[in-house]
Structure formats: structure tokens, C-alpha cells
Design a protein around this nucleic acid. Sequence first.
DNA 1: TGTTGTACCCTTACCTCAAATGGTACATTA
DNA 2: TAATGTACCATTTGAGGTAAGGGTACAACA
Lengths: 129, 129
Amino acid sequence: MQVTINIDNPEPAFAQLTAQIKQGVLGGSLNPGDALPSIRQLAQDLSLNPKTVAKAYRMLERDQVIESKGYRGTFIHQNAMAGSTHDLAAWVHERLTKTIAVLRDAGATDSEIRIAFGNAMNQQISKGT
Amino acid sequence: MQVTINIDNPEPAFAQLTAQIKQGVLGGSLNPGDALPSIRQLAQDLSLNPKTVAKAYRMLERDQVIESKGYRGTFIHQNAMAGSTHDLAAWVHERLTKTIAVLRDAGATDSEIRIAFGNAMNQQISKGT
DNA sequence: TGTTGTACCCTTACCTCAAATGGTACATTA
DNA sequence: TAATGTACCATTTGAGGTAAGGGTACAACA
């Protein structure tokens, strides 16, 4: 499996990583149980900060595409195929689109919606990055 | 009715205006049919840009607290009491809070939610400010 | 000892947006 | 003519966010 980062691509580096690994799973070049390069190794190969690669891995693990096994390394998840299929981001977008439509229908201005959104995001407790 | 702008108040000027006028209605010092100072006049009195006052008036008219009658001026709306009671911003906040909770429950990170929100806001068509 | 993932600290660059301001212009009407 | 609300053009300031980087440190294990 070959991974590449295109600087000219407006897509952030970590997103390019996750997209390519998911493609590798869907395309059959990455199979459940396969070992992935370590965070530090991949970061060095791509001239990226380990934190950037770690972020990509973290997202992929949440989506059940890969599985981190601590000191043993990181591997393709058993349900990687399913995990690579459903698109959480698209679902989030759809969900927000519907809510926004309701708010606008009620007469709320975009400024009001944006400010209320910012407040709501900061007043609730979160865990992830 | 006396209106004041407090520079030290983090609340934006137009919001201070709308809040005070709504308070005037709820407190009985402003009654349906009462004339309000013109946008330019109030702006000059408060050392504000007419656009800032106009923004406050626009919000108040949407909430049915005041009514603009073109060249005749602006007046307290007949349903001003009801309009000053219900809080659209609070409802918007509650609605967004619920949606955000659902998205977070699904595992979405705050970054993902914020980015999706920004996209959703920009991909839909709006009218108001 | 060296490597694994992970969790903190802090900093930078870039971007978007809200808020407010300045100016000009319009139709309407007393 | 003067005043009304309104609609454009534009700019500036400040806040807050993402993405990414640099560095240090930890427990677990071969």
C-alpha cells in the first residue's frame, strides 16, 4: 500500500491519509489484520508531524477501520470494510442541514444561528478532538 | 423611554438596543402605537452608526415588537407584548444543543461538527442578515 | 534500550465571521 | 425641501476556530 500527501490539495493532510487508507480497504489492498506503519514511521516517511498521523489514526480507529494495539502497533480492523463504507461526515452534514433549514424557516438570521451554534458547542461537554 | 449603550458591556450595541426596547414594552413604558425615534435620530443620540440602529429595528420588527411604516416612522407593534416575550434566540440555542448532542453521541468530533456546520450554512440559501 | 500508542505543554499560520463604521442612493410623503 | 426606512458599495477590528508543528513524557513490552 502506497500513501501520498499532496501539498497542493486543499484537503488537510490527516484527511488525505484517512481517505487513502479507507480506499485501500475498499480496494482490497488492505485486509483485516494487516499491520500499518507506526505513527512515527509513517510521519517520517511523509515528512509529517507524528501528531498529524496520530490524528488520522485516531479517526480511523473511531470509524472501526483500524485498531490500535498499544506497543504491538496498529492493524486493519476486522470490520474495516464496513467501517470504510459508511460516511459519518456526510451524515453529520445532512443532520445539520435539516436543523439549519428549520431554524431559518423560523426566521432566525444566519448570524443568530452561528452565534447560537458556537454557544451550544462550548456549553456542552465533549471528549474527542 | 430612555435608551443607553454601555461600551463596557460585551453585549453588542444592537443587542443592547433590542433588549432595552423589549424591556420597555414588558415594563409598560412602551405601548402599542407609540412612536419610536427615527433610525438616524437615535443613531445620533447614541453616537452609533445608523446601520447599527437599523439592525436593531430590523430584528425587533421580525419579532413583532415594532412596526416600520416607511416615511411615517417606526411604532410599537400591536402585539408587542407577545413579541417581547418569546425568545427566538433561546429556542434556536435549544434546538442546536439537541442536534449537537446527537452528533456527539454518534462519535463525531467537535472539529467535524464545526466544519460540517460551516459547510451546511454556506451551501444553503438564506435571505436575512 | 528501543519502540509502541498516547497524552500533555505551547506556538504558528491561515481562515471565516460578527460587529461596527463610512458613504451614497432610492421612492415616498408631508 | 426635508425626513422616513431601506438597500447597496466598501472597510476595519477583533475573536475564535482548524491544521500543523515542536517538544517532552508516560506505561507496556520485546
